[in-house]
Design a protein around this nucleic acid. Structure first.
Lengths: 265, 265
DNA sequence: AAATTAAGTTCCAAATAATGGAATAATGGT
DNA sequence: ACCATTATTCCATTATTTGGAACTTAATTT
């Protein structure tokens, strides 16, 4: 979709780790395995430096080098992620409420959190099948054109929101994608009042959603949940009706967090 | 299950990245979030050093620091892994054959590859009657007590196998877990001749499987596929009957790899 | 409430690892 | 066999990391 990092973290690109992460980003966001020369052109590092950096990443299993000398993301990342996901408290607490929402509507339900300028999907409950771990889970999507993203932005204090919007660069995915901070900000203000957000085919044509914000008291998690489906089945009127159950589910998740984590954090 | 890295890669623990990966391993393999002092004790680094290292990992989104000053795996890992998984060629090629095998048997099918001393599960197709078991895409499991693991080991040349066994430390999960290199080696030799492997409740009590080895011609992927299920439903006799279809599916996956990647690599 | 202990953070000279330009080696196409 | 492209190694220079100690903050005890 986009070949360069769309800012999942505000990470500096200096320091040994920072530079290596840029490379990891490059390779994981590419459309396929990259050869040394490809990365050389993209990274703009001297040959010797790049070669050693890639060697280190391969040695650690973060990248893999195939028989044709092409670099691909390493499988060690899967192990890290599986553990990161399996024990995530926010997800564990939200899980039953997502399932309930799916039961009530029959449509796909998502849980996502804001990280940098991206929404990372933490869970998904599909109408037809049980969760397929990485089919969608883990994917980072832009915050400005997703229901969960806009719901999350509506929770930010004005100064943080302003900072985020200032750094944001817009990609037009469909005819209705926001492409300016002004119109986006106007909608976010509305969402903050209403308490729910829509995605009117802004990320993918033919796909609509209604979302409600969710956050943990210590503000570690700022995100949202959504009901998503095809526009032909989900009229805007139906989505408006679903705003209430989505908000209720969001409320129950936050309640669950309070109970689980205790009041004084 | 085990709190220290069980060797998914042979990675050196020197160099800036190596040391940081040790920390990432520590935190992701822990049973829950760790405080600074916990990590200090586990990592054996000087305070100042550790503090900066953790700061860098947090800054890059590889770790997260919650309101109580506890470190947990970062969600950025999910994004990396989602991409690593989504475009993995081996998995993509194997997918239809796994589904077919699941259709034919009705039981859960796994695809795993050997990385270091661990099997990383790349895919899983749930059976018609899902069984609660400890398996998840991305999870690293020991090679010496899983069907896929033993099938993979049977593909290794003698010298590499000897090296791997020499470094292996055994944990007894059930009464039938291999706990010595000798008995394991004997079974692996048998598997190399027969072309399929069993897991006789060696990793999890009440869970059996039959597996067949799968590899890519360039040896980038050495792993296997398996049919897994509860012992009360899967008699050893039934598993023996399934050895043939599993091997056939394995053969078709390897054929798919040859076609997809071309013969001369 | 003050004292005590523990936990977490910052500082900076010394040790170590990363850098990058250039030379060398390997690969692949004709 | 040749040439062009691509990948790897080398090493003096440069930048980053290191780690002991001092310092700040938070928690616990007296």
């Amino acid at each position: 979709m986009n070949s360069s990092g769309d800012g999942i973290a505000q990470a500096r690109e200096t320091g040994t780790l920072g530079k290596l992460m840029v490379l990891l980003d490059l390779v994981t966001h590419a459309d396929g395995p990259l050869r040394f020369t490809d990365i050389l052109a993209l990274a703009g590092q001297p040959r010797g430096t790049l070669h050693r950096q890639l060697s280190h990443l391969v040695e650690e299993g973060l990248l893999e080098l195939d028989g044709d000398g092409r670099y691909a993301p390493g499988l060690r990342l899967l192990d890290f992620a599986a553990r990161s996901w399996a024990r995530n408290e926010f997800r564990l607490i939200a899980e039953p409420h997502l399932a309930e929402l799916q039961q009530a509507t029959g449509e796909t339900v998502h849980l996502g959190v804001l990280r940098g300028q991206s929404i990372i999907y933490l869970d998904k409950v599909d109408g037809r099948q049980p969760v397929r771990m990485y089919s969608q889970i883990g994917n980072a999507s832009p915050c400005y054109c997703t229901g969960v993203g806009k719901a999350a932005l509506s929770l930010l204090p004005a100064d943080l929101l302003a900072d985020l919007l200032a750094d944001l660069s817009f990609t037009r995915f469909t005819a209705s994608t926001h492409v300016s901070a002004e119109t986006l900000l106007a909608e976010i203000r509305e969402i903050a009042v209403e308490g729910y957000a829509f995605d009117r085919e802004e990320h993918e044509a033919g796909i609509r959603c209604v979302a409600a914000p969710v956050w943990s008291e210590d503000r570690t998690f700022i995100g949202g949940i959504s009901i998503t489906g095809p526009a032909y089945r989900l009229s805007m009127e139906l989505l408006r009706q679903w705003a209430v159950p989505v908000q209720r589910a969001a409320g129950r998740i936050m309640e669950g967090m309070r109970i689980r984590l205790g009041p004084r954090r």
